[in-house]
Design a protein around this nucleic acid. Structure first.
Lengths: 143, 143
DNA sequence: CGGCATCCTCTCAGATACTG
DNA sequence: CAGTATCTGAGAGGATGCCG
């Protein structure tokens, strides 16, 4: 059963299409679209920004992050940290002690991401009410 | 099997948890986290920002949007436009002609979203290379 | 032309258990 | 304590067809 799939369950860091693909065939109007999509796919997932925001105050250990984010599963935190590390947004430092200790911290690159992210968060905070209102209006209008 | 599902296929505009739920049970450290998550869930999907960016230049018809975004399915465009309209980010105007014509445009609210979105896109464009490099280094380091 | 419904597939993400 | 692997259900999203 499902014998021919390669291995969909392994920690899978998606390839994120190489760069110079068939730019002639598809793509929206401007190439910026693709970059937006890429960054959104990286950062717009459920936890990445939260973890980065959390680490903004200083390095934390794995379990500490898990406790603070509360709601994130062990598995998802592992994946999130891995992909963040891979993209150079956080750094990982493991100490060969017993018990083992691993600390995560934001890199300068990750810190630079905080700024536009915070801008977006600010927009969210500022217009959250407006969105809820619009939604309410829309719903009562449709029914 | 799969006989008792209620109706997962219908156009589904997810409820987006009401507001004041059990804030005591879950939530990360600061409440800002929830708002970030919410806005990311709205805007961080595959197409919303692209559509908004596209409409930034002026109103467009349904089919025209579909042609420009190229890659989006009929179904997804319908859903995306609907939820954007619901959140007050785009407006919909239908003309009772034959054949029917429907135009979509960004609202002021939607336009205000463009700014932080563009900031994020700028970050993406500026650090895209750094991310790719970090990723490459990570991958060759791991193997 | 534009919107809605159905089917189907593939990915995401939680629970769980095992290893170092 | 940190990380990996497996199973599983839920959901996103594409293809298609019908209706206004």
């Amino acid at each position: 059963m499902t014998t021919d799939r390669h291995d969909p369950t392994t920690l899978r860091l998606p390839p994120l299409q190489p760069d110079g693909e068939g730019a002639a065939s598809c793509s929206t109007d401007h190439p910026a679209s693709r970059v937006i999509r890429e960054i959104l796919a990286r950062v717009g997932d459920k936890w990445s920004l939260l973890v980065i925001g959390l680490l903004h105050d200083g390095p934390l250990r794995f379990t500490e992050i898990q406790r603070r984010v509360d709601g994130i599963s062990h598995r998802m935190l592992t994946q999130t940290l891995r992909s963040l590390q891979r993209d150079g947004l956080v750094s990982r430092t493991s100490y060969a002690e017993i018990p083992p200790r691993v600390e995560y911290a934001v890199t300068p690159l990750g810190r630079s991401l905080s700024e536009p992210a915070i801008a977006l968060a600010a927009w969210a905070a500022g217009h959250h009410r407006a969105i809820l209102d619009a939604r309410e209006a829309f719903d009562s209008d449709e029914r």
